[in-house]
Write a protein that binds this DNA or RNA. Sequence first.
DNA 1: ATCTCCGTTCCGCTTGATGGAACGATTCCG
DNA 2: CGGAATCGTTCCATCAAGCGGAACGGAGAT
Lengths: 264, 264
Amino acid sequence: MPAAQGASLRTIDRAATVLRALAAGPGAGMRLADVTAEVGLGKATVHRLLGALAEVGFIEVDPHEKRYRLGFALYALGRTARRFRVVDLAGPALERLAEATGDTVYLSIRDGDEALCVDRRTGSYPIRTLTLDVGDRRPLGVGAGSLALLAFEPPAEIARLLASGRRAEYPQFDGPRLRRMVEETRAAGFSFNDGRIVSAMCALGVPVIAPDGGVVAALSIAAIRERMNPARRAELVELLRAEAAGLSRALAPEAGPAARRQTG
Amino acid sequence: MPAAQGASLRTIDRAATVLRALAAGPGAGMRLADVTAEVGLGKATVHRLLGALAEVGFIEVDPHEKRYRLGFALYALGRTARRFRVVDLAGPALERLAEATGDTVYLSIRDGDEALCVDRRTGSYPIRTLTLDVGDRRPLGVGAGSLALLAFEPPAEIARLLASGRRAEYPQFDGPRLRRMVEETRAAGFSFNDGRIVSAMCALGVPVIAPDGGVVAALSIAAIRERMNPARRAELVELLRAEAAGLSRALAPEAGPAARRQTG
DNA sequence: ATCTCCGTTCCGCTTGATGGAACGATTCCG
DNA sequence: CGGAATCGTTCCATCAAGCGGAACGGAGAT
């Protein structure tokens, strides 16, 4: 047995599998038999899981048609993770960038000491560069988006991250080299990754700065080297910058729902 | 032991409790000890739960500071429940209504054979009418928002719902009476609940109609009877209608993120 | 009207989850 | 700077919680 590789609590692992299956299924919901087939567990087990998940509101049951869908409690929980709010705001910007450039654009945010890819759009150019999937992580500094997230942090934070970063899997990003890349990025105002992760593939990244000066996200764009000559690079940087600026503005009314700050 | 009243799978019940605790806690995350204190379980148990939840991406661990926060997988899961998208769109409208009227405004959607309250804002008037909490359910037809959701369904659907509806807890909404209320609502274009659930409390509701003609949500507003004389009622209905129309328009670009429909 | 498939319930078995305790790691404070 | 208190992590024997095969009842299909 090759060590079944799941969460250390089997019930949670299975529950997550069921939820993912429901998320991937049609919006109208899935029948018990559909879910059972999808997750490969006994129907009694799946029935019990669905029942328990419904009791906590993570899924909802249509009692008329026997259909299960993701529930409001799950939606409400996810919404409270405010730091991901930029994902909702950035959707149209990614759309426009992919449309305008034909290449692949990414949205990343910082999560702990890593960069997390939270959204992606592909343009129409037939050679696609899909280095990152949504949900993938990289150490801060590794990759254009990740480097943009790192480089515009306060200097003290950068120093700490360069010292403590775990980049063992990426020997091409040793301390001194990464430090130089950070400085180049700060000077230029954007990051540039010249085939250092996947050769023949280049990427550019710009930070999205919150009204308070903090870095909340990075927009980046990847393409094969032929599509990254200096002239086009300049164009792409301009496009990225414009959208990043628009996002900064959209983030300004941080009051958002439910938070009402009086002059206190 | 008085039958602890939780989900039929204890692990799922506990996991949900942990997630809710994290959602209620500060955005910066919680330490293990905080979570332990909050949920009232042994720290070994909580540690194991947090670890398993992190393995499926529902929470994230800051390895530097030992802090746990809700994770991207949870956010992404919640987002796939598209039918709740109206909640995000409607936030500003609720805000404006609460501000303009001083009363309490609700957003409800239909979920199965029930109405589900998905958002609420309170105005500045000192007597607050908090009949519904976010997440509460009512049978379709019971309450102003719920009645607005029911009344603008297709006639066949209304007939089925009136026949099959479980309203045993609300004897004041028997079949014939509810049918008459539905007809009044259709004729007027808005629903009016005159203290039928909580006496001395009135409420008005209007539907939010999607571009395809379907009812996606209801906006409603509740106040004590003194604030619901006919003149003010007319004003409130106008305000509700205007916001509902705005929402309908905002729903139109249903393309949204990730869905790109070419001319086929 | 008969057949088939689906959802639900039951129950004995066993495995997976439990939590007290002990151990390191940190932080706090004097 | 050193000692104490707190916190996070690991271990393991115990036991009950979850498992799933099987049987049942109902809804749809032919």
